[in-house]
Design a protein around this nucleic acid. Structure first.
Lengths: 187, 187
DNA sequence: TCACTCATGTAATTGGTTACATGATTAG
DNA sequence: CTAATCATGTAACCAATTACATGAGTGA
């Protein structure tokens, strides 16, 4: 069920862009991040790798190994880089999905500090909006749902607040760093 | 992309079990919770409603309205209740999915306090495990991924800790309530 | 007049999943 | 001798999406 789901295609392209990897490499990497971004099965991983290759966004190098199946290591092409850039530029869909945000975050951190700031700020705005609606429905006078006054909203609020706190402190740190860089550059 | 996705079927059945609702009702309800549980489109909502009906898990009452399309209000059947109960009993899939947990949480809060406690404890164990692996990879000496030492892990850790805190305090409160109830009953 | 809410639905497509197949090597 | 790891892949299936169709009433 693709609910609230996110292009693994682009994320995988991004991972390949960081350094050349095989499908198996990617799987292993994603395993450790599975809670945050999810962990696509081989059944979808390999086909997307094939698709990316066919569309010219990546290239392969087949590396034979003694006594093991040969690895297929994918690298990003110029075209791939262009497509990836485009994807990174467009806004993250609003909604429940931590995933899409985290995907971008993990890639953006390898890009410029400005882009990173932009992503975090975008997220901040979304979470802030989310927090407001939660608060409204908690104190809200449209009192007719059982669900509403339940734990769920409180739970959501706690997570939202924690996220906002982290976003703020991270934004602070980063913009300080940025200012330092600017000063250094201007000398 | 159906990554980490979850049976909306059962959740919808659960919503109908709380009180009879139409497809439109459900949509409106889910809208306010979209951040936490997601908000299925009509294109999937109506068909699942049809399927539930066909399988005898729900029944309909068609309520004609003057000057508006008639509403189809679904109620749960005995069979439906049995199936729902079964679903609630089986463990929540591990993984990234807030969604599946929140779905259950919002339904469980209408059930017994024991069940609620069980759900929260299950979640606690999962999040705790998640937190540990995150901490390991943060201090971890398997230092070769750029991603690893990036913001993502820290972000995940912050969210996990916030969730754990909330889970603990909620578990405390609830088990206190439970003890009080027990005392009352034994008198 | 235009857009939105109410209220239902279908068809085409997408992007995942599970289960399967292959096959050698290593660790308990 | 069994199970796990490395490493690739395909086929059948599933649950969601988007885009479309219909149609009256309300409010700017």
């Amino acid at each position: 069920m693709p609910a609230g789901s996110v292009n693994f295609r682009h994320f995988i392209l991004g991972l390949v862009s960081l350094e050349p990897r095989s499908g198996y490499d990617i799987k292993r990497l994603l395993e450790s991040l599975s809670w945050l971004v999810g962990n696509p099965s081989f059944g979808s991983l390999y086909p997307t790798l094939h698709a990316l290759l066919e569309e010219g966004l990546t290239s392969v190098e087949v590396i034979p190994q003694r006594d093991k199946p040969s690895r297929k290591v994918y690298s990003i092409t110029d075209l791939g880089r262009r497509v990836l850039k485009e994807w990174m530029a467009q806004p993250v869909e609003t909604g429940p999905s931590l995933k899409s945000f985290v995907m971008r975050l993990s890639l953006a951190s390898n890009f410029s500090i400005e882009k990173l700031l932009a992503h975090l700020q975008e997220r901040r705005a979304q979470v802030e909006a989310h927090r407001k609606t939660l608060e409204l429905s908690i104190n809200g006078s449209n009192s007719k749902q059982d669900l509403k006054e339940s734990l769920v909203l409180e739970y959501g609020l706690v997570l939202a607040n924690a996220e906002l706190e982290w976003l703020d402190s991270t934004l602070n740190q980063l913009s300080q760093q940025q200012q330092i860089l600017e000063v250094v550059e201007s000398n």
